[in-house]
Design a protein around this nucleic acid. Structure first.
Length: 134
DNA sequence: TGAGTGACCGGGG
DNA sequence: ACCCCGGCCACTC
């Protein structure tokens, strides 16, 4: 019998590919990335994968992956500054304004074409049909 | 072996 | 929003 056991490392490349889809100025949670990767991936594996980026941190926008509360889980890497630099707003408590910056996930088309999952719709935050720019 | 820890999450109160 | 708890997986005493 074959062993269906999957090592954490087996998820890494897909985690990096999924993370690369998060646009500048938006953020995703560790759980979001895990759900997009699917196939048993979980949020902690995503954290481990990003922690193991090394030189690839230059091409994977790891700073856009944060925890579910909108908080920064890293320290000493300037993650917050990088996000501020790309226009992400924080509240007084130091959390990202998720209602304004939470990435809705990849398009159905992209996900299907590349073997990833798309995220379920979040009823709470509508894609701002009533957000007026002035 | 078992407890603790980590770039975590969801549910319930 | 908070805290608590269980689940998650790999690693380290």
């Amino acid at each position: 019998m074959s062993t269906p056991v999957r090592e954490e490392r087996d998820y890494y490349e897909r985690i990096y590919t999924a993370s690369e889809q998060v646009p500048r100025g938006q953020v995703a949670t560790y759980g979001d990335i895990a759900a997009i990767v699917g196939d048993g991936c979980d949020a902690r594996i995503v954290g481990h994968a990003l922690g193991a980026l090394g030189a690839r941190s230059a091409t994977v926008p790891w700073q856009r992956i944060i925890n579910r509360t909108g908080g920064i889980s890293t320290s000493g890497h300037g993650q917050r500054e990088l996000l501020v630099e790309e226009g992400v707003a924080f509240d007084e408590r130091g959390h990202v304004r998720m209602d304004a910056h939470h990435w809705p996930g990849p398009s159905e088309e992209w996900a299907r074409a590349h073997g990833f999952q798309s995220l379920p719709k979040r009823p709470g935050s509508a894609p701002d049909p009533q957000l007026r720019l002035f």
